[in-house]
Simulated scan of single mutants.
Amino acid sequence: MAAPTSRDTGKSGSPSRPDTRATDAQTDADLHYACWAGKLEEVKRILDTGRADVNSRRGVERTPVMTAARWGRRDVVELLVSQGADASLVDDVGNNILHWACEGGDRETVEFVLSLDAVDVNARNNNGRTAADLARGLGHRQLSDLLVSRGTQ
């Protein structure tokens, strides 16, 4: 995935006085890229501008926190949640943040996601699969066992 390019949006504001009137599509794209790449400081910088929507949607309607969870960026997931990311959202195929974290296979990320009250561990995506099903199917047996020990089907 190539780095997004910056562009002049024509909106006022500066790093010291961010324009919080509206979010910006390019800034949202930059946020998604920084989450994918695990660039914690860049994610902080983007969020500090006030011009990114922490729950913006890209691709299959994935949010930045879903992207970070998929790539095992636990520190980014924690930051996004602390900044208001909605961990209860699902993408257009019904996957929630736990589905994405299990697909990524990073245990620390999965454990953090499990600690969030907003996550339904038994949620099924549009194909009827739980996060534990995804973990099993991808060979992440330890994650599958962890989810089953937490009452997941």
Rank of each mutant, 00 (worst) to 15 (best):
V121K: 15
V121L: 15
G59R: 07
K44A: 01
R21A: 10
T5F: 04
D117I: 03
D19L: 03
V65P: 01
V43L: 08
L147G: 09
R62F: 02
H32L: 00
R51N: 05
A131F: 14
I97A: 04
I46N: 03
T49A: 00
L114H: 10
E41M: 01
R45W: 02
L89V: 10
D75C: 10
V148C: 12
D92K: 09
H99T: 08
A87Q: 03
L143N: 10
D24H: 04
L146Q: 07
D53Q: 01
S12M: 06
S56Q: 02
G151T: 12
L146A: 09
L31G: 02
A34C: 04
D86I: 06
D30I: 01
V113T: 03
V148P: 12
P64T: 06
M1D: 07
A29P: 00
R62C: 04
A3Y: 04
A135H: 08
T9A: 07
L114V: 10
N55C: 13
D24P: 00
R21I: 00
A135D: 12
V110T: 05
D75S: 11
S16T: 13
G105P: 08
G139N: 08
Q153C: 14
N127H: 12
V121P: 05
G128L: 06
N122K: 11
L98W: 08
G50R: 00
I97Q: 04
V148Y: 14
K44P: 13
G151W: 14
G10Y: 07
D75T: 08
G38D: 09
A37S: 11
V113A: 05
V43N: 05
F112M: 02
S56C: 13
G137S: 14
G84V: 09
N95Y: 08
N122L: 12
T49E: 02
S88G: 13
D24K: 00
G94Y: 05
